[in-house]
């Protein structure tokens, strides 16, 4: 099996102590960065902390900055990376808890802010059955429903870093997912939550969010579509009275 020596440079911290630790080991083809971290934990340093769960790119736990770019550790092959020195840091634009474990509280608070659930004027009871949808109606928003809340887009967004109030790409994409759902009746209510100065108008289409998204959700596109909806709504409001 093809093997090579690699050095993991891991940014470690706990409380106030911060340090860069180097771990050298032999990686074989097929190993992911997450496999590398597990190897370090098992054989070199049991105190290393990182968050991971499914190992197959669907739980969204192992997002981290690998060689400067936010990626899922479980979906990144060591042999696909350009260098044999691999720097690993916790996600940016979030507080840290320990080592590679970032604090997602603010991220999830912002997600909650856009009411990411079906809003109905009159709720159906369970006995009345489900809200029926055709495949075409599903296709309208399916792409935006694939988000796994891994925080990569939020971490790469320059504005999410400079403005703590900005809702960020994931939360806005989530809002758009419900705007495009024909079962949802919260259109105007939700639009008011996302078209403020800390909502879609903070996006200037750097579009890095769509570049790093492991699920190809394209949050940048979603935010531009929210802008369009907000403009049309404002235009209508202007001429209504």
């Amino acid at each position: 099996m093809e093997e090579k020596n690699v050095v993991f440079v891991v940014k470690r911290f706990y409380n106030d102590s911060e340090e860069e630790r180097r771990y050298e080991f032999t990686a074989s083809r097929g190993m992911t960065v997450l496999d590398g971290l597990y190897y370090i934990k098992d054989h070199l340093d049991a105190t290393l902390a990182f968050r991971a769960s499914c190992r197959m790119g669907i739980c969204g736990s192992c997002g981290m900055i690998i060689n400067g770019r936010p990626m899922l550790a479980c979906s990144t092959q060591i042999f696909d990376l350009d260098s044999d020195i691999i720097t690993v840091e916790p996600l940016k634009n979030m507080d840290g808890i320990k080592d590679l474990v970032a604090d997602f509280n603010e991220f999830f608070e912002k997600h909650k802010k856009v009411k990411p659930y079906l809003i109905r004027k009159v709720e159906k009871s369970v006995e009345e059955g489900e809200y029926i949808q055709t495949p075409d109606q599903l296709k309208e928003y399916r792409q935006y429903a694939l988000c796994i809340k891994c925080g990569l887009c939020y971490s790469v967004c320059a504005i999410a870093g400079s403005n703590n109030e900005y809702l960020g790409p994931a939360s806005l994409a989530s809002a758009y997912r419900f705007m495009k759902d024909n079962r949802d009746e919260g259109g105007e209510e939700r639009l008011l939550l996302v078209d403020g100065h800390d909502g879609c108008w903070r996006c200037h289409f750097m579009a890095e969010c769509s570049e790093v998204c492991p699920k190809e959700v394209d949050p940048a596109k979603a935010i531009q579509m929210i802008k369009r909806k907000a403009f049309i709504a404002a235009f209508k409001r202007l001429f209504r009275r």
Partner: peptide, 12 residues
């Protein structure tokens, strides 16, 4: 008023 203006500023 703010809600009306922000989208209009963007459009302009």
């Amino acid at each position: 008023t703010k809600k009306v203006l922000e989208p209009i500023w963007w459009f302009f």
